[in-house]
């Protein structure tokens, strides 16, 4: 159970105390047990775990957006990126700490790409950071491969039937990143200005990139 806290710290509004009140679940217990065993046996240290969390936290959609903006403004880079997504990102200094490969999927007027991992939550973490919660939940995972147009419609994305929906199910060693269509009217924009409108969801493929966030 939770209770309103009474001890006064640095802010003056009331909220429920942030504390763990439930018994840890099965997987929490398993994670704790394995972590403690690995540390006790000297295979990894607590510092290693903390460092890896910092590695994960250092990755965010801003990296992917910079990759997309560069591809939109540098045709040679775009060609290399589409030939080998991982090498293209590595050119910009993005390391692949999880040793995955990356395929960059270009949206065109004929093909719209959508990414899912039906088995779990494979995601291009080196370039986008952690996936959103909905990406990891079973409704998205099951429906993205069986009724992708309905899923896209729920995100506000309506595509005509002559645009092919191409769903990529990441299952093993390869991760995917969508290279969205560059919006019209951005010809004179700088890479930084372009990167600012490229969102995480557009790089998963559930929405297009738009100017000013208007609906598709």
């Amino acid at each position: 159970m939770t209770s309103v806290h009474t001890d006064h710290h640095d802010h003056d509004h009331d909220h429920a105390a942030i504390e763990q009140v439930d018994r840890p679940g099965y997987y929490e217990v398993m994670e704790t047990a394995i972590r403690e065993l690995l540390i006790a046996k000297g295979l990894i240290s607590a510092g290693d775990i903390r460092h890896q969390i910092e590695v994960l936290d250092s990755r965010s959609p801003a990296l992917g957006a910079a990759v997309v903006a560069r591809a939109w403004t540098d045709p040679d880079f775009k060609r290399r990126l589409l030939a080998d997504g991982r090498k293209g990102c590595e050119e910009l200094g993005i390391s692949f700490y999880d040793d995955t490969q990356l395929i960059v999927l270009e949206n065109t007027s004929e093909v719209h790409n959508l990414i899912v991992c039906t088995l779990c939550s494979c995601y291009p973490r080196p370039v986008l950071g952690l996936p959103p919660d909905w990406y990891k939940l079973k409704p998205y995972r099951a429906r993205a491969v069986s009724e992708p147009r309905k899923v896209l419609a729920e995100f506000g994305t309506h595509l005509p039937d002559d645009v092919e929906i191409r769903v990529s199910d990441s299952t093993a060693a390869v991760r995917y990143l969508v290279l969205p269509l560059r919006p019209e009217g951005t010809d004179d924009w700088s890479p930084d200005e372009l990167a600012a409108i490229v969102t995480r969801d557009a790089m998963i493929g559930v929405i297009p990139v738009t100017i000013g966030g208007e609906a598709a």
Partner: peptide
């Protein structure tokens, strides 16, 4: 090798309600 393999979604799901050109791509060992 892994292979990127394409399947028509209409072939995977007999009652698929999207467009006939829609595809699923996946990497398979």
């Amino acid at each position: 090798h892994y292979y990127r393999v394409a399947f028509p979604l209409t072939e995977l799901w007999s009652r698929y309600e999207g467009a006939p050109g829609d595809e699923l791509h996946v990497e398979i060992f």
